[in-house]
Structure formats: structure tokens, C-alpha cells
């Protein structure tokens, strides 16, 4: 579904991605872990071109999205993204946050979009917040809404960029719960996270990134039980 070939990204003199190759298949839940500065967030942000790669190719459903000729906006309609800091639109109500893109991109009529939004809000238990502004919500609620906002576009893949890192510990659970449910529904997911429990439980593959490359890749069971590279062994000994 997503094919990444020899992906490089540099910021000035700083080499963040050094030739990443990977193939993400339909229905997989890829969890990316690694120390800070390893390039895992940049890798994720390259997948929908929020970060423009310095060189390399990214294919999504047979389209080369790194080509300047590709209309990236059309591609992004099919790739949901959830951010560390939620990034709900502060000037809009929750309902408008969710329905803005489907309506403005003419994917749905207004009533249809609202109906769909209410259904999704019910699914995450926040239907009573439809008319509230983001400022009045807790972090966990905001992140659940952010997930709903992406889902309202009916994406083929969901990208999560450290979705629980900015949350109070007691709110992490409610967000992970929504993500687990989403994973069970068959959504293709790429998740950058520090939640090792989530990686073990939900991931179909776990990637370890370090120094701008994928150092190790395995099923969660093997990944945590039999880490191969010394770098991953060291990392796991610190975080587990």
C-alpha cells in the first residue's frame, strides 16, 4: 500500500533520514519506536509529505506521491494524521472541526457530514461535545476528537505521530482504547509512539529506528523477546 524507497531527508547539515526502505501492506499496524532524534517522526511526516523528502520515492496505492506532478491534496484525503499536540482548529466547534474538510472538499453534503460526525462522536463517547470549542476539552478528549476528525474523511491509512506523548498519564488509556478499537476494525495504521504496551498488543510489526534508518524490524513478540542489535537491546533495557 505504501512503498518507501531510499528515503533521505536533511535539515541543513543535519541528516535525519538516511535511506529508509520499507513496504507497508494493507491492514498492517506498524509501530515505530526509537530514541528521540532517530528520525521516526520525520519518517512518518514524510509519508503524507508534510515533510518534503530530500530524495527518494514514496508510492501510495501505485501513485508516486513524491513526484511534483502528483496532487498531494488528493492523496492526503486518504491518509489521516493524528498529531502529538492534537492541533484541533481552535476557531471552530468540535462539529465544525470534524465536518470542515469533508464539506469543503465536496466529499459530503452538509447534513451527511454532520450525521457521520455524530456517529463517530458517539463511537468515542463524546457526542455531547459537538457544540463545544476545543479550548474547553481535556487533552484526552481533544485527541479522541482529532482521531474522529481524521476518520471523518474515510481514510485508507491512519498515521499517528506520538498521539499520547502530550497527555496526562491518566488520559493515555482512553486514547489508546480508541486506537485499539480502530486497529480491530481493520484500519491500516502507522504509529510512532513510546507506548511499548501498545506496540506489543496492537502492532503487527514493530520497527526500531536509530540514526535515520530502520535498524530492526520484527513481530512484536520477537521484537521484545529477542532483540538482535545491541542498539535495540540497550534501548529496550532503558524503556522497559
Amino acid at each position: 500500500m505504501i512503498i518507501v524507497k531510499d528515503l533521505h531527508k536533511t535539515f541543513g547539515d543535519n541528516k535525519v533520514l538516511a535511506g529508509v526502505n520499507y513496504h507497508i501492506h494493507q491492514g498492517e499496524k506498524i509501530v515505530v519506536v526509537g530514541p528521540s532524534g532517530s528520525g521516526k517522526s520525520t519518517f512518518l511526516r514524510c509519508l503524507n509529505l508534510l515533510e518534503v523528502p530530500t530524495s527518494g520515492e514514496i508510492w501510495f496505492d501505485g501513485q508516486l506521491i513524491t513526484s511534483p506532478k502528483t496532487n498531494i491534496n488528493k492523496i492526503r484525503e486518504h491518509m489521516g494524521m493524528v498529531f502529538q499536540h492534537f492541533n484541533l482548529f481552535n476557531n471552530l466547534t468540535i462539529m465544525d472541526n470534524i465536518t470542515l474538510a469533508p464539506i469543503k472538499l465536496k466529499l459530503m453534503k452538509e447534513e451527511e457530514a454532520k450525521e457521520n460526525a455524530l456517529k463517530l462522536l458517539q463511537r468515542v463517547g463524546l457526542s455531547e461535545k459537538a457544540d463545544a470549542y476545543p479550548g474547553s476539552l481535556s487533552g484526552g478528549q481533544k485527541q479522541r476528537i482529532a482521531i474522529v476528525r481524521s476518520l471523518a474523511m474515510n481514510p485508507k491509512v491512519m498515521l499517528f505521530d506520538e498521539p499520547t506523548s502530550a497527555l496526562d498519564p491518566e488520559m493515555v488509556g482512553e486514547v489508546l482504547e480508541v486506537m485499539k478499537e480502530l486497529a480491530d476494525s481493520g484500519m491500516t495504521m502507522v504509529v510512532v509512539t513510546h507506548e511499548m504496551g501498545f506496540a506489543r498488543e496492537v502492532g503487527t510489526k514493530v520497527l526500531f529506528m536509530d540514526g535515520g534508518n530502520i535498524v530492526e524490524e520484527n513481530t512484536p513478540r520477537e521484537f521484545f523477546a529477542n532483540p538482535q542489535s545491541p542498539r535495540l537491546q540497550e534501548f529496550l533495557s532503558k524503556v522497559l
Binding site: 492526503r76 491518509m79 498529531f83 492541533n87 482548529f89 470542515l100 481524521s150
Partner: peptide, 10 residues
């Protein structure tokens, strides 16, 4: 805010 908007395809 911009990133969120662009990531939705706007």
C-alpha cells in the same frame, strides 16, 4: 493548525 488542515487534504 496549518499542518492539521493540510493533512486533511485542504
Amino acid at each position: 493548525q496549518t499542518e492539521a488542515g493540510r493533512s486533511l487534504g485542504l
